[in-house]
Design a protein around this nucleic acid. Structure first.
Lengths: 116, 116
DNA sequence: CGACTATTTAACGAATAATTTAATTAACCG
DNA sequence: CGGTTAATTAAATTATTCGTTAAATAGTCG
């Protein structure tokens, strides 16, 4: 049973974010091409790639001994939705507040048609 | 000198995300109101709140001994922008690729006006 | 097959993060 | 002031994460 890392923990690490940014600008990269761009050991990067894979933030294609990595834009969208969702809920909340204030205003005018 | 936690590490923790979600639906909450909703000690939550504060994800207002917490929607936008930016770069990359293919197509037709 | 290439997994130490209990700060109220 | 309430910081502990070196897997090529 493969343990899946959540998307939020995955992007918490700056190296992993950097890999994602790199992949956003490059069609695809093999593991070694990624290794070469970082001062840490290939093994360390391999672990980062595993975490990104588990979070579905990247996808892999096998080609001979090589692993070709590609970003997964739909997973990026998921992250975007979380933050957007919070903002929207916050805004809706403000709308509701506004409505309540409007209703209060109506009541002071003796014009109360509002239902529970 | 106050150390500032980055937004990505801040939202990596599920308890902190939960607090943010709570605050997105509620105008504001005092520290104790937040404490009461979690099984961990108030001190643990207090530390989480500190991290959210440092990441500017929440804002605090003092009222007597109480600290009133509110979400900061503009900080949420920052996160949104990061993921959106990556998606856009990925899409732009696809556009560029398309353009290159178009140019190649032109060349095969002997119509090469493109500069390096 | 045996050597080589690409990449991952394993084992382990060091650094960092989360949680707990204890102590501290700060504002209120009689 | 002295006691109480609200919240934070400090110290200690445990858990998790990150990086390293060493070993393993898997595919290629002569």
């Amino acid at each position: 049973m493969h343990e899946s890392t959540d998307i939020f923990s995955a992007i918490a690490d700056p190296t992993r974010r950097s890999i994602l940014e790199m992949l956003a600008d490059t069609d695809s990269l093999t593991a070694t091409e990624i290794y070469d761009r970082y001062p840490v050991s290939p093994q360390a990067i391999s672990r980062h790639l595993k975490i990104l894979r588990e979070a579905k933030l990247v996808m892999v294609e096998k080609k001979a001994q090589q692993r070709i990595y590609r970003i997964n834009p739909s997973a990026m969208a998921e992250l975007e939705n979380w933050s957007m969702g919070l903002r929207k809920r916050w805004n809706r909340r403000l709308d509701v507040l506004e409505q309540v204030l409007d209703e209060e205003w109506d009541k002071t005018k003796g014009n109360s048609e509002s239902e529970e």
